[in-house]
Design a protein around this nucleic acid. Structure first.
Length: 585
RNA sequence: UGGCCCGUAGUUCAACUGGUAGAACGCCUGACUCUGGAUCAGGAGGUUCCAGGUUCGAGCCCUGGCGGGCCAGCCA
């Protein structure tokens, strides 16, 4: 192989590759080749992102290549919609398979020809057992299976039957082609595994051409081989399949039917899949959430799907960073969601322009501010990035502040606004609360009366007096209405599957995972797509992201329009006050 | 009474292949601050699953236990 590792291996798979390179295991000059092989039966989730980063990242590191291969051997579950979403998601993550887009279905003819060789070599037979009978005769974990009564059929009979399966003469489930291995093998995968089953179903790519389809085990290794994959990286549950993966390849080699031009064979390595606290990683259960309408779709921002995470506002950069940090190993693991959020905040903090948005507005009238006067105040777009520049924000006599930034009776250590107290308006003036207007009927606070100190424009008092709190605000006259969607974990428990005996996993769904806020007041720059803040070139996917000061990171939702702004809260800011407040409860 | 894989801080990974355990996240203190953000400084936290063995020396090697995961689809 050509490339040499530039850094020390970061995990056992790279150690293996380094060793392979050192020993020229696959022949000098052979390029490292990996593949990402999703089955298009659902949307990709963050667990797949780990695999994508591993496979494409490995190819990148070793100056090799990574193929995108749809593992489309079961037309009853696979759909074009999923194929399209998978490609979009991989690209969004920042990876490029170039011309190397393949499908297991590309190899159906070759696989079929090889199957004939297995039959001719007496290594495969057509079995007429029903699925129930096969299951029964397979034996158990601790006892051997029984041989199929059809195991002894002649080559000629097998050839004839398989050909008739191929031609569509038999109904689904009536026959299978099975490998003849060992019904007493301690590894159940080797007890005469099914190679082909009959499925009269249209395939997204091959249409009605086939009615027999290869099983995963019979297709995967050979697909790797045909593509010249050197390192076939998969998850732990396939460990038991490796002997079969190797067996098929070894047999074909012994038939003298190896793919032409490939002097080496692929090898499978397994790593532990990703789990994240509060996240459901079962594709089947995610499908159920979508079908049950427990979420709005595969791209619901609460979903752990890449589409959902993207819509939520996560950046591909932060996901790649996350993938780097969690490592690759063979032990079962569950990553705390806090690490993911840390990676996200670290990226967003550096890149997201700041803006002011009041989520739960409380009107403030500044009594000594001239009626009708409007000022344009200078606001820094990103204190972490001087190159982001500044913008003007309008200020007037009436503004909105956050309801929770005022307390009639301040709790201990509360240093925001309360009667008689002074706070700083971000980029604006110091104001002091002089009165509260309440609804005479309910006693609810309606608005605040305040005075401002004209000498504190920009936020500094000439007399040097200290003001502990700075709060965000939006001028009432120029405020733009927006809808803001707040998200929380979709599952209340760390482990969504952790339910009492007999209970359903759905009982762990967080009933408060979505809160929709309407009538939010945001600064006018957020409505102007040309404003420096929305500089979409800042983001590789063109999704505008902001930090709403003191609250968190938000992005413009896909449903947002110029006259109906919608924002998603991607993640909150770290909030030590909230933590303190929660503790004192 | 099966086969395969895995056991190192709360979590996820390291430990230059046998030389006396370290990082990140999380947690706790403090400093600073026009975001109760960010940043900075410090701290707590380990019987390396257990027991034997080999060795001058074991997280690493050997043996035996214990614990966990996966496997009995014509799913992948």
């Amino acid at each position: 192989m050509t490339a040499t590792p530039s850094t020390r291996p970061s995990h056992f798979i790279h150690e293996i590759i380094d060793e392979d390179l050192r020993t020229n295991r696959n022949g000098a000059g052979t390029q490292v080749a990996t593949r990402f092989p999703p089955e298009p039966n659902g949307y990709l989730h963050i667990g797949h992102a780990k695999s994508i980063c591993l496979n494409f990242g490995t190819a990148r590191k070793y100056n090799g290549r990574c193929h995108l291969r749809m593992d489309d051997t079961n037309p009853t579950k696979e759909e074009q919609e999923y194929i399209d979403s998978i490609k979009q998601d991989v690209r969004w993550l920042g990876f490029d398979w170039g011309a190397h887009e393949y499908h297991a279905s590309d190899y159906f003819e070759q696989l079929y020809q090889w199957a004939l060789l297995f039959i001719k070599a007496g290594k495969a037979y057509v079995c007429d057992l029903t699925p129930e009978e096969v299951s029964k005769s397979r034996g158990s974990l601790t006892s051997p299976g029984k041989e199929s009564p059809f195991r002894g059929r002649s080559v000629a009979e097998n050839l004839d039957l398989f050909e008739r399966m191929h031609k569509g003469e038999f109904p689904d489930g009536s026959h299978t082609l099975r490998a003849k291995i060992d019904m007493a093998h301690p590894n159940l995968n080797l007890r005469d595994p099914v190679m082909y089953r009959i499925l009269h179903a249209d395939h997204p790519r091959t249409g009605g051409k086939w009615c027999i389809y290869p099983m995963y085990d019979y297709a995967h290794g050979q697909s790797d081989w045909l593509e010249g994959i050197t390192h076939s990286i998969c998850t732990l549950e396939f460990e038991d399949h490796k002997p079969l993966y190797d067996w098929y390849i070894d047999q074909i080699a012994s038939f003298g039917a190896a793919p032409p031009g490939i002097a080496y064979r692929p090898r499978q390595y397994e790593f532990a899949r990703l789990n994240v606290t509060h996240m459901m990683m079962s594709k089947r259960k995610l499908l159920q959430l979508v079908q049950d309408k427990a979420v709005r779709g595969w791209d619901d921002p609460r979903m752990p799907t890449i589409a959902g995470i993207r819509r939520r506002g996560f950046t591909p950069e932060s996901l790649r960073d996350f993938a780097d940090r969690i490592g690759v190993a063979k032990r079962e693991n569950t990553i705390e969601i806090e690490l993911l959020e840390h990676c996200l905040r670290e990226d967003l903090n550096k890149r997201a322009p700041r803006a002011m948005a009041v989520l739960r507005p409380l009107k403030v009238v500044i009594e000594n501010y001239p009626q009708g006067q409007i000022e344009e105040l200078d606001a820094v777009n990103n204190p972490e990035d001087p190159s982001a520049g500044t913008r003007k924000v309008p200020f007037g006599r009436e503004i909105y502040i956050e309801q929770e930034d005022f307390a009639q009776v301040p709790p201990p250590k509360y240093f925001r606004l309360s009667p008689g107290k002074e706070v700083r308006l971000r980029w604006g003036y110091l104001i002091t609360c002089t009165g509260v207007t309440k609804d005479p009927a309910t006693g609810a606070i309606q608005e605040l009366r305040c005075t401002y100190d004209p000498a504190t424009r920009g936020g500094n008092a000439p007399d040097g007096r200290k003001v502990k709190a700075t709060i965000h605000w939006v001028a009432a006259a120029q405020a733009v209405d927006a809808q803001v969607r707040l998200y929380d974990h979709l599952f209340t428990k760390d482990d969504p599957n952790d339910v009492p005996e007999g209970a359903d996993w759905r009982s762990n769904i967080n009933p408060k995972s979505l809160e929709v806020l309407t009538g939010c007041k945001v600064e006018p720059s957020l409505a102007a797509p040309t404003h420096a803040n929305s500089a979409s070139s800042r983001w590789t996917d063109g999704i505008a992201r902001y930090q709403f000061e003191r609250q968190g990171y938000f992005c413009v939702d896909a449903e947002s329009t110029s006259d109906r702004l919608v924002f998603n809260r991607t993640v909150t800011l770290r909030d030590t006050w909230a933590k303190l407040a929660a503790k004192s409860d």
